[in-house]
Design a protein around this nucleic acid. Structure first.
Lengths: 135, 135
DNA sequence: TAAAACTATAAAGCTACTATAAGGTCAATA
DNA sequence: TATTGACCTTATAGTAGCTTTATAGTTTTA
């Protein structure tokens, strides 16, 4: 299987596959005589794992960490769970921050309507004067 | 006022001020004979405006856009409000996406406990097998 | 046979800074 | 006077996770 086929199979771009290889997330595949990469099913699984982790918002470093655990199958999986717990609390704090931001933006938006000149715009005034009561 | 004082006043690093100047967000200040930048109160206000916009999550491009509106004070401020509305819906969709992600992560986490070997880890299995029922 | 489609590498671009390097300026001190 | 320390200057590289571009070689198709 060549890189284009693998890319289509998993739904990524070929450059992304080369990038993951360069980053040490995908093992370097064998090469044909012409230098073309040849992939196996294992590579497909590895790539799919990476993509699912990315969809879950894990960083490449965290993915690397997970892979290192997989190389040690008889260790307890405490660290895996801890990694996920950390990530969950990270996501939760992002949500909290964005919700606070939304409130702020909505209240800023409420200070204006479309029938004004820029000079009298409540939004711009609100930003300029720092009426940004954050809590 | 020199760059260090301005930086301290607004609470940014001096490099950030130079960066904003280079990006066209802050007007180039006058220079002393020795080449040192000299800032006025206007610059302070401009910099504070930029920082407040950044706290609101606006990109430098959006800030640039807002500044261009400020240069035309007698235009209607429709575009300003539209920019904010767009940003609010952007923030809201981020929140929605993160909430869905959180659910996914929590359910994944629930599929394991700390008393297993990596080989039998419910989290790793969940990712590997793609049990990632997204809705 | 020639063009289209695929592969390769290397390097730059994206965002919004932050950090580092190498040096010039200025006031106070030894 | 020499030097130390704090400040300023520019230019360049690094961060994350790719994407884009440039340039070139290979294979497949028309």
């Amino acid at each position: 299987m060549r890189i284009g086929q693998l890319a289509q199979l998993v739904g990524v771009e070929t450059q992304t596959i080369r990038f993951y290889e360069q980053q040490g997330l995908l093992p370097p595949p064998d090469r044909q005589d012409n230098g073309y990469r040849v992939y196996t099913e294992k590579h497909g699984e590895g790539l799919a794992f990476i993509r699912r982790c990315r969809i879950l918002g894990l960083s490449l470093a965290e993915i690397h960490e997970l892979q290192s655990y997989q190389d040690d199958p008889h260790q307890p999986c405490t660290a895996v769970n801890a990694l996920l717990d950390d990530h969950i609390s990270h996501v939760r704090s992002q949500i909290t921050a964005l919700q606070a931001l939304e409130k702020q933006l909505v209240s800023l938006r409420a200070s204006c309507n479309d029938n004004r000149e820029v000079e009298a715009c409540g939004v711009l005034a609100g930003i300029s004067e720092g009426n940004m009561h954050q809590q």
